[in-house]
């Protein structure tokens, strides 16, 4: 590595800033008990990590993470939160110590394993010399699509993507089976809601 100068220094500063924000957000999520704040901070975490994906040259992943993590999954969490509860119990005693020990042990083992990993940005690492770079060099002549990620996603690994689409479809089906088809559950719950509100107004009338 040829020292952090100019562009390298800017990238390094960006990395450190984004990582610091990610750490602060993650620790805040671990310590908070208001579920609304937790959900909003997890959206923030997704957005900041999307920024970091751009800095790491993964624009497609950044796009997906920003739209899915910060957009859809936050709406999903809020929808589930409205139906369940809005504050979490704070863990204490043994339920705090034992996970901490397990997590520290796991982290130590993983950090020990990184000693064998190729250095950051190494073009000669095993991951970057195999089939991935082969796709890069063959896409101009075989697919003729500028975005290599699209070429690999839809053409070279089309079978893989078919499976992923099947998983998304199956997950949608599973949620519908668990929670009921939208219109039917809406009409029945609206009916129930109207009945209970009618009860309430009747009770209110009795009180007066």
């Amino acid at each position: 590595m040829t020292g952090f100068e100019g562009m390298d220094l800017a990238v390094a500063m960006l990395n450190i800033t984004l990582l610091a924000i990610l750490f602060i957000t993650a620790i805040a999520i671990a310590r908070l008990r208001s579920l609304f704040a937790i959900v909003m901070l997890s959206g923030l975490y997704s957005l900041v990590s999307a920024t970091w994906f751009v800095a790491l040259d993964a624009v497609d992943v950044a796009f997906t993470e920003a739209s899915v993590g910060a957009g859809f999954s936050t709406a999903l969490y809020l929808g589930a939160m409205v139906l369940t509860s809005r504050s979490a119990k704070i863990e204490q005693g043994a339920s705090k110590i034992i996970p901490l020990l397990v997590v520290i042990a796991t982290g130590a083992v993983l950090i020990y394993a990184t000693i064998d990993l190729p250095s950051f940005g190494d073009a000669m690492s095993a991951a970057n010399t195999g089939v991935g770079i082969d796709y890069v060099s063959r896409t101009p002549s075989e697919i003729a699509v500028p975005n290599i990620v699209t070429a690999v996603l839809a053409s070279y690994r089309g079978f893989d993507t078919l499976g992923e689409t099947g998983v998304v479809f199956t997950a949608g089906l599973a949620v519908v089976l668990l929670l009921g088809f939208g219109e039917r559950s809406l009409s029945s719950s609206l009916r129930r809601g109207r009945r209970s509100s009618a009860d309430q107004s009747r009770q209110g009338g009795d009180d007066e």
């Binding site: 497609d60 997906t64 969490y77 990620v149 997950a171 949620v175």
Partner: peptide, 29 residues
């Protein structure tokens, strides 16, 4: 160019992750 293969795998993993998250939240409900 950066290696596109991990990008493709992680892109689909994000979308599949949110779909499975939806199943988990449905079970929680």
């Amino acid at each position: 160019y950066s290696n596109p293969l991990p990008h493709v795998l992680m892109l689909t993993a994000i979308v599949v992750g949110v779909a499975t998250l939806a199943v988990g939240l449905a079970i929680v409900v």
